[in-house]
């Protein structure tokens, strides 16, 4: 198993509840699953792959964990076409050339071997996020954000780091981490990640929060929002998410909506207000139309047949 050769570290958290409380102290509202897996990742020294719809707090989780552990956040933002030279390291060619030229003038004293040793040394290495995280002396959290955006082939770059916390550089040898950083990979699930990558990670699916948690998020994130308003907002969002939409409102959209309502001085969301502001929650015209229709419809389909208070048979 992987952990044998790696340096031991003191656990960062005492219990699952401790993770939850500390996250709450930096305004991140987790649930049992999220907190449990962060705790486990620390104990097992394994990366976490966080998958789920956009705007559900995946990136924020990594940031918040960095904050509560007093670690520096190192972020690798993925995009199509990302390669080794941007993710891991690159040799500083310009500087190398200058060095070679300079040596010519040095009256031929240095042999080529010396020069080669010299130009492939640390001084000429440009460190990119992955290598930076491995070499860090201080505590770090490594965030590999939106990993689903790189090509499958590029995933291979990550495998060595994720299983052994080391990087092999042909000219320098293998560089091993001095400490096991907490590593988060996020994915908006626009494509399936490779099995090899998934096998190395703990898997956390984050979905839209339940109503209670979303209400809490609104209360912590939106200054000036009242308890009743937060409650209404969370309920309406829950109802809207039950509709079949092209894109359900995300947590960040809920927060935006709540902020707008507070700015407008709203203390109770009536039908008109809801309809007038759904464009903040929903991005597609067809979704807005659908939500408007559903929220304002006389609840004919909602009422059940049968007289009120029909006796239980």
């Amino acid at each position: 198993m992987t952990s044998d050769a790696l340096p031991e570290h003191d656990p960062r958290f005492d219990s699952v509840d401790a993770v939850r409380d500390r996250l709450r102290s930096v305004d991140y509202l987790s649930d049992e699953g999220i907190a449990g897996i962060v705790y486990l990742a620390d104990r097992l020294g394994k990366p976490i792959l966080v998958e789920g719809p956009a705007g559900t707090g995946k990136t924020q989780l990594a940031k918040s964990v960095a904050e509560i552990t007093g670690a520096r956040l190192i972020r690798l933002q993925c995009y199509e076409g990302l390669d080794e030279s941007k993710a891991l390291y690159e040799w500083n060619y310009k500087k190398q050339l200058l060095r070679i030229q300079a040596s010519r003038n040095e009256a031929d004293s240095a042999s080529w071997d010396d020069i080669e040793d010299d130009i492939f040394s640390d001084e000429f290495l440009l460190t990119r996020p992955l290598l930076e995280a491995i070499r860090a002396e201080d505590p770090v959290v490594l965030l590999i954000d939106e990993v689903d955006r790189v090509e499958v082939e590029t995933e291979a770059l990550l495998l060595e780091i994720l299983s052994d916390y080391q990087v092999s550089i042909p000219e320098l040898g293998t560089i091993t981490a001095r400490q096991i950083p907490l590593v988060f990979l996020t994915s908006n699930n626009t494509r399936e990640l490779s099995e090899a990558l998934k096998r190395r990670c703990l898997y956390l699916h984050v979905d839209y929060p339940d109503m209670e948690r979303e209400k809490e998020i609104v209360l912590t994130k939106v200054p000036g929002v009242s308890e009743t308003l937060a409650d209404e907002i969370a309920r309406i969002v829950r109802s809207i998410r039950q509709l079949e939409l092209k894109k359900s409102p995300s947590v960040s959209e809920t927060i935006d909506w709540a902020r707008t309502l507070v700015l407008l001085g709203v203390d109770h969301v009536d039908t008109e207000t809801a309809v007038a502001t759904t464009n903040i929650l929903l991005k597609y015209q067809s979704d807005i139309a659908k939500a408007t229709k559903e929220l304002t419809a006389e609840p004919a389909g909602v009422k059940r047949p049968g007289a009120p208070g029909a006796p239980a048979r």
Binding site: R235, T296, P299, V302
Partner: peptide
């Protein structure tokens, strides 16, 4: 109850 309120109660 407005239709919106009906719906929210019902969903709850």
């Amino acid at each position: 109850l407005t239709p919106l309120e009906e719906r929210l109660e019902h969903d709850e």
